[in-house]
Amino acid sequence: MTIPQEQDILLRPHAEQAFADELKALAAADDRPRPPSWQLSPWAVVTYLLGGTLTDGTVITPKYVGPRRLMEVAVATLATDRALLLLGVPGTAKTWVSEHLSAAISGASTLLVQGTSGTAEEAIRYGWNYARLLAEGPSEGALVPSPIMTAMRAGSIARIEELTRIPSDVQDALITVLSEKTLPVPELGIEVQAAKGFNVIATANDRDRGVNDLSSALRRRFNTVILPLPAGEDEEVAIVTRRVEQLGAALELPAVPAAAEEIRRVVRVFRELRSGVTTDGRTKLKSPSGTLSTAEAISVITNGLALSAHFGDGVLRAGDIAGAVLGAIVKDPVSDAVVWTEYLEAVVRQRPDWSDFYRACREVNG
């Protein structure tokens, strides 16, 4: 009996698990200077993110498709004492880039604070084991370190997802950490000072409702890198295709033949509705309330592959993606439904080679 490897039974391995072979090959080939506590040099980190071929023939797959300079700026920031803020609309790979940066630099991407409206200051600073606190009083044994404190002690990268979802007063608990590189624990009369290699990567977007703007004092302590939406249709199609293949393999979906036509169709629909104009520039369109991001296009295609594999004929067709396209576009059942119906009639119906897509969408619309 063959015992499966750990990553083979995990639904979603961490980056350092899924790409362990690539990280190992890069570390072996990397002869450039490394900042303190870094597993790879800045050059190797960028190569890991953008892909390439090493001198021994090892192929490093791209994790991010976009301007190289953005990744160079992000990595250079983390090699200094400045924290990094990845900013962009939803679906621009902020979390993905954050995870892979942490994996490549520190060898671990799990020191994570997930920002929500209910995130408390303890998630940034520290908490207490109240059973031990009552039994022993304040002590280091009763202290429960946050991911930030753990990263400071280890000289590692800490990640904060959705920073602007965190209440403003909790956000400001980061100011001392980022400026002084220390975290006071007044109850014990001690402080935790950051080891070399410590830094913070935060992600944020300003499109979601309920965001809390960063104070100017906190924003000054970050270098901001804005991750854009893919510049062209071909680039976005390539991103969606690659991620769909990876997700299909991870989810062990039955094999479905290449679906390039349907992927391009979904990407074009999303891009046209996002921009408010058709690809040829002839027809102006209303935009729906959603973001129609690349991540949503990936989800639509992955869902279509599952439908095709389990309930269809094994070939991805328009009918397999129509329902998911409708769900991605029509978030508001009133205004978005009007936008989608107008797009179907004014654009999709007029494209002769999209007749199957038009029929499938009309059938789903009811």
Rank of each mutant, 00 (worst) to 15 (best):
L178I: 07
A27N: 14
A258V: 04
P67W: 00
R351P: 12
L85C: 09
R282Y: 09
A360L: 02
R265T: 02
L50I: 08
A255M: 13
L112C: 04
L133Q: 03
W128C: 02
V364E: 15
A309V: 06
D213Q: 10
H310D: 11
Y126R: 00
A194D: 14
P184Q: 12
S102W: 05
A135S: 13
A259P: 06
K94T: 02
G276L: 04
W43Y: 12
D206F: 14
Y48E: 06
N223Y: 08
V65F: 08
A360N: 02
H14L: 15
N199G: 11
V65T: 14
L292E: 02
N303M: 11
P138F: 15
L134T: 08
L178A: 06
Q114F: 04
A123V: 03
L85R: 00
G91F: 02
G52I: 06
D313P: 09
T110W: 07
S275Y: 00
P4S: 06
G91I: 02
S37T: 11
R34T: 07
L50Q: 11
L253I: 15
L86V: 11
A131Q: 12
P333E: 13
D332W: 11
G304C: 03
P257K: 00
L87W: 11
D320V: 01
P186L: 09
R362P: 13
T164N: 07
G127K: 00
